[in-house]
Design a protein around this nucleic acid. Structure first.
Lengths: 333, 333
DNA sequence: TTGAAAGCGCTACCAA
DNA sequence: TTGGTAGCGCTTTCAA
């Protein structure tokens, strides 16, 4: 590996001068600059960023701790983070923790030792202990979550209360008055709590007494599939099911289909999240789209502002959702 | 930030000794060790990995250059890379290049300057120029591709010729003799070429004269959806369509469904890739599963072996595929 | 405009 | 078992 020393020697100048031409930090005479540049070209010299980091105390490294990269919405966020981070010359060190607290702690420690300048946490829920550790060890951090019981850390989120209310309102507008909500784990998280609240309040606002919350075993396709047996029992009594996420909705629709029921003729189903699949199911799924790429982009942008000392950077941000009308709802009017 | 110097001063020993207890590199008397450890605990001292890297000349950094992180199979590979890499104490620096050659070159240069110890390229196709640059600038690299016209770089792949032949054989076994192949861009890539070859050779082997290759505009859902008009014209003449990827297959199936045709009753459809959606379509899609998590895991494992000087590490690896029989094929026997 | 030299935080060698 | 010290590759004063 060629070093700055080699370049200096070969071009007959001091390493200070070489440093100056590399960084354009101080005036260098044209002839000297030219000579140095030639040597750099010849040797293929590239400055060692590790050494540079050591002296400048800057790593341009942003750590991303993520629970599960195989969720497509998380991958989309990471994409936003990576792309925008790179625009500002920051690199992304990816850490997958798979819901393991110990792993999260290890990653945090590692990122600190690697001199990461900021940390982004992505996930529905992280442990308070972790959040405390992040606040304590890291200068700058951002947190994407739906479970905001902890307002002491800067975060970005989407207003799921409003989104849920809007979806419910749409269903009512289509003439539905017997609407059920299919939840993943009940009201165990703030996020889910907000959605159910949005659903119930909109019902109340429209003087609808009927409400019903199904609670599935989990949040995956299979859980939705399994819940269909419950839904089928209520057929006729319930005319629409609002699922807390698209995967659940697709599982439900498929089971309904497999048992010979038709969506939306026999029952309407809507989802939340606008997963890619939602356009591919039959019927296509009416849902709420959340701008995950943008969430990632805004998150990293904000973090970088903080890193670079912008005091005006907003620290809690709410991004808008988008209502996607497709074909899984029957108009009862 | 506490440094090794501070710890040394506060515990009344030399920095050499502190270094020894941190790294367990040389014997230290129990009392001294205890004292140092206490100071470390108190101060929350964490060794600066940047400084460490500079002197040890090791970064434990693996760069991953990936075209598009939003492909779920790529995300799955990255997951495998990350998880296994971490087991061996390596970190992953993620670089998304979105098919932009200049970006790829920049990433490569950056990774070199950051002293990355190895590089993994993931994508269907990378430019020869890039591959040359990787070989020239980087000590160790691995390349995941289907388009292996360049055998001079270590790579990992999956034998799509065999996979395609097996799928064709299965169709024949189910009594189909008028089987079409739905390709994405025709034989433009080695990968696609291999698949079509597998399809045709298996046909020939079974003395079937009929063969037909549809070429779609691209490889996405919409392209498959659009191709359905062609397929519908051939209904009756063609009894099964082998799609080069699941997304195409799902698009095709959906259009067929939208036009009132039934799969597999009116026509059988199979895919390739085992995308997550393939279990959610109706009918569920018979396809070929490729072990992307494993691909990532094996890739990074091999790279690390090379980094750590294991001469016996195999440099070109072929991973097995897996045939997934589901419900999109009608038995004609 | 240039060079010499200090020092970033650490490891590893040599002596004691 | 310990401490002193050179040096990793670079940036950045300070003087010239």
């Amino acid at each position: 590996m060629t070093t700055i020393k080699d370049v200096a020697r070969m071009s007959g100048v001091s390493i200070s001068t070489v440093s100056r031409v590399i960084n354009d930090s101080k005036p260098v005479s044209p002839e000297v600059r030219k000579r140095v540049l030639e040597v750099i070209e010849e040797t293929g010299y590239r400055p060692n960023e590790v050494a540079r980091s050591l002296v400048t105390r800057r790593s341009y490294l942003i750590g991303v701790i993520v629970n599960d990269l195989s969720n497509s919405y998380i991958a989309e966020m990471v994409k936003g983070i990576e792309e925008v981070g790179r625009m500002y010359n920051y690199d992304i060190l990816l850490c997958g923790s798979y819901y393991d607290r110990e792993a999260q702690m290890n990653h945090l420690s590692l990122l600190n030792r690697k001199q990461a300048e900021g940390i982004i946490l992505i996930g529905y829920h992280f442990d308070d202990e972790l959040i405390e550790a992040v606040k304590k060890n890291t200068k700058h951090s951002m947190y994407f979550t739906r479970d905001i019981k902890n307002d002491t850390i800067d975060h970005i989120s989407i207003n799921s209360f409003l989104a849920s209310a809007e979806m419910t309102k749409y269903l009512i507008g289509e003439g539905h008055s017997r609407i059920a909500f299919l939840s993943d784990f009940g009201e165990s998280s703030t996020h889910e709590h907000d959605k159910i609240k949005g659903y119930k309040e909109m019902l109340k606002e429209n003087n609808i007494n009927f409400s019903k919350v199904y609670v599935a075993e989990g949040r995956r396709y299979n859980d939705g599939y399994a819940m269909a047996t419950e839904v089928i029992k209520d057929l006729g009594n319930v005319t629409a099911v609002f699922c807390t996420n698209d995967e659940l909705a697709i599982g439900l629709i498929n089971h309904l289909f497999d048992d010979g029921y038709k969506v939306p003729d026999d029952i309407s189903v809507v989802g939340y999240g606008d997963y890619k699949e939602s356009q591919h199911v039959r019927p296509t799924l009416t849902t709420i789209s959340e701008p995950f790429y943008d969430v990632g982009a805004v998150t990293v942008r904000t973090l970088i502002k903080k890193i670079e000392g912008d005091k005006s950077a907003r620290t809690t941000i709410e991004l808008p959702y988008c209502f996607m009308e497709r074909n899984s709802v029957k108009n009862l009017n």
